[in-house]
């Protein structure tokens, strides 16, 4: 039975008209950039540096040529989450900024919830981290062929069994969803009411009846899949090759080199700033 899950042609999604350069990047490059920059970006609180990373990230975002409607749901969700996060950080520790920067310029208010320039600056830095990482993730998510992902992960020395596990889960997600739906409907036909005609408690309780057949059918599936893989010698060698891996091109090497430079720069800034924070209040 065809389902609506078969929407995406090659990459996880994406506009494919003229294959922008970002689509030609190897999966390895994308993983190195994403992991490297998010690590240094999470550690650093140097505003100038974060702005630089943001600019870099937006180059990728622009290159991915995503349609707004493709990403807006995700973007709204992240904005909502970020705002909530900022409010909570402020509520729980309104003096954290003053503590870090060793000064306190009161803008307004008084008492525990006093608003200082230092706290706002600290929150600004946190926000910048999201602003740089989200476009980067979106750009890569929508331009990476899932098949290439496992090959790319394996190249940076992640054990191939783990990489293949990722590939297999991508392979079986549509099947699993279809199976879940089918079992759910079959159980409803048996008499389980989980449509809107039943109360919420009834629906939650009913859903558990779907689990048993789902678990059993998944276990069966895993057994057969494992057998199919063993019969074609999966796991017999220390390494394996990947049909979908393609050698790194000049552009890949260039971008990896640039990423390394950016990371080194970030670390150098720790030295200059005498820590993770850039302090404009001195």
């Amino acid at each position: 039975m065809p389902t609506k899950l078969k929407t995406d042609p090659k990459p996880i999604a994406g506009s494919q008209q003229r294959a922008p350069w970002i689509n030609r990047l190897s999966g390895t490059t994308k993983i190195v950039i994403l992991l490297g920059l998010s690590a240094i970006g999470m550690v650093s609180y140097d505003t100038r540096y974060l702005v630089l990373l943001t600019a870099f990230a937006f180059i990728f975002y622009a290159a991915a040529r995503l349609k707004w409607r493709q990403v807006r749901g995700l973007v709204y969700a992240i904005i909502g989450f970020t705002l909530l996060n900022l409010v909570l950080v402020y509520v729980f520790s309104p003096h954290y900024g003053a503590e870090i920067y060793g000064s306190s310029h009161v803008l307004f208010g008084s008492g525990f919830f006093v608003v200082t320039t230092e706290e706002l600056f600290y929150l600004l830095n946190m926000t910048l981290k999201y602003i740089f990482i989200v476009p980067l993730i979106l750009a890569f998510l929508y331009t990476t062929d899932p098949s290439e992902l496992a090959a790319g992960m394996n190249r940076i020395k992640i054990p191939y069994k783990i990489c293949y596990a990722v590939e297999l889960s991508l392979r079986y997600i549509p099947d699993f969803m279809r199976e879940f739906k089918q079992i759910s409907l079959a159980q409803q036909a048996r008499g389980l009411e989980i449509s809107k005609k039943a109360g919420i408690w009834q629906r939650v309780k009913g859903s558990s009846q779907i689990l048993l057949p789902l678990v059993f059918s998944s276990l069966d599936r895993i057994e057969v899949t494992t057998r199919a893989m063993r019969l074609r010698r999966f796991g017999t060698q220390k390494k394996r090759t990947w049909y979908m891996s393609h050698p790194l091109a000049k552009l890949d090497y260039g971008l990896i080199f640039f990423t390394v430079v950016l990371i080194v720069l970030g670390i150098a800034l720790f030295q200059v700033n005498g820590g993770r924070y850039y302090n404009p209040f001195n």
Partner: peptide
């Protein structure tokens, strides 16, 4: 179950699967 036998994301990768495991060059 030819569906369970299909362990890769695309036809090409599935056909290549045994050779990948033998570390044949790309």
């Amino acid at each position: 179950d030819s569906d369970a036998q299909f362990v890769a994301l695309t036809v090409a990768e599935d056909v290549a699967f045994a050779l990948e495991n033998d570390q044949r060059p790309v």
